[in-house]
Nucleic acid binder design. Structure first.
Lengths: 235, 235
DNA sequence: GAGGATTTATTAATTTTTTATTAAGGAACT
DNA sequence: AGTTCCTTAATAAAAAATTAATAAATCCTC
């Protein structure tokens, strides 16, 4: 039995989420602003948080920053579509996933499941075991620390932009697997892609310029012609 | 074949949507107000609804609430940009997606596809999870991993192009069975074949060159003279 | 089992598709 | 106001798909 903390100032939304998730066997704890969320978090053992961004008193991003000071539990951010910039800053302050309102109930359930699975089931994740709680993803000498958002190659720190980081993180979380340009776009932007081919190519090039010794012959970020891109799984 | 119910009091918009979506192979059912929409919903098996918010008689939000009383099918709301944002955000709990008018046809198509895919995918997600672990196809020492798109023979990695990979995957998924050139073409290209004999032959040769020790006497990819090709089922 | 017809194989050239690169415009943040 | 970064557009380069022409293999009929 997992406990999920749902935080939104709109009580209707909180109730709706409760209905969907309790049907799936989760136990719901509710809060209506950031302060209340932090209280509930102290009082209960929480396995996942669903956090709205726009809230009075203490907004979702502030709240998330507070949470991240001493917790690594999965956080799914909720945001209205109009506030799409929040996505980026939300993910940069430590969110694991986000969903835009209005949301598809089935999608929310799927994301909750996958985040809990990822968090609880360390055994087949590629988070390094030494530092479970620091959430380090790596392949070869390429490492990213999702807590600090630091990226290093051969121990040398690399500076990536938010979008570059998110693309690399997505591919590194699924290293070895090949994703099409569309899939990458949809996973990183959380939006439908229509004719977004070139955006990905440009970002890929920028990432390669930063993480690869020779961008023309990438060691990490490889293209599978006609299919997509992958991050090589190097032991 | 999916049936899409399009509801808008503006007939021009309904017709425009019909044109876009029927080109994509969807079957369109039309309604011009909320009442009519509910009727059509009873009479037909509908897979997705596109629902305008501002309508006479029964508006989109009321209609949505009615629908949600006993249906969970995906609903995409249509709204003019000028319309009150609160009203739109008020429907947070029921709609799966929304598009503002004037809309980009490609965007609408993309959203329709994604919502149908999500709905279908998530609703049999328990089944598909089982299959996910069986992403490796093999015969003899020939193996392909559809997640990483890696192909190996005797443990040695082989590089195939996208088309070569798709042909091999199709035949390997149905190993032992013989398929005509037309059948292979239609399954791999998803199009009618029209004098495409030689294309297949060329690709077959390329595949053999890569996976066979002696392409002249293929061990895996065999021809059944006058009938077609198969991948041998080797235990 | 020889010859012709049919089907598949092979090779190379051409065309198309896909990805890479470069540069510039513009939005958002400092 | 300056900087950073995302996005778009235009073009180049790379890779692969297709076409065409010819060769070889198999089948069928006599």
């Amino acid at each position: 039995m997992y406990n999920i903390l749902v935080v939104d100032d709109d009580k209707e939304i909180v109730n709706a989420i409760e209905i969907y998730l309790s049907q799936e066997g989760y136990n719901i704890i509710k809060a209506y602003d950031g302060e209340e969320a932090l209280e509930k978090l102290k009082e209960n053992e929480i396995h996942l948080i669903i956090l709205d961004i726009m809230m009075p008193n203490k907004d979702g991003i502030e709240t998330l920053q507070e949470i991240r000071k001493d917790k690594t539990i999965p956080v799914i951010m909720l945001s209205a579509k109009s506030e799409d910039y929040d996505k980026i800053s939300g993910l940069n302050t430590g969110a694991d996933d986000y969903v835009t309102k209005p949301f598809n109930p089935l999608e929310l359930i799927a994301r909750v499941k996958s985040n809990i699975r990822r968090y609880v089931d360390f055994s087949n994740s590629n988070i390094s075991k030494k530092n479970k709680n620091e959430r380090i993803l790596s392949t070869g000498t390429l490492e990213i620390n999702d807590e600090t958002k630091q990226v290093t190659v051969d121990g040398k720190e690399i500076k990536l932009t938010a979008t570059e980081y998110n693309i690399l993180k997505f591919l590194l979380e699924n290293k070895g697997k090949v994703y099409s340009i569309e899939q990458i776009y949809e996973n990183v932007w959380n939006e439908e892609s229509y004719g977004a081919e070139n955006i990905i190519a440009v970002h890929i090039r920028h990432i390669r310029e930063k993480i690869e010794i020779n961008p023309k012959e990438p060691k990490y970020l490889k293209v599978i012609w006609g299919i997509g891109y992958k991050v090589e799984d190097i032991k």
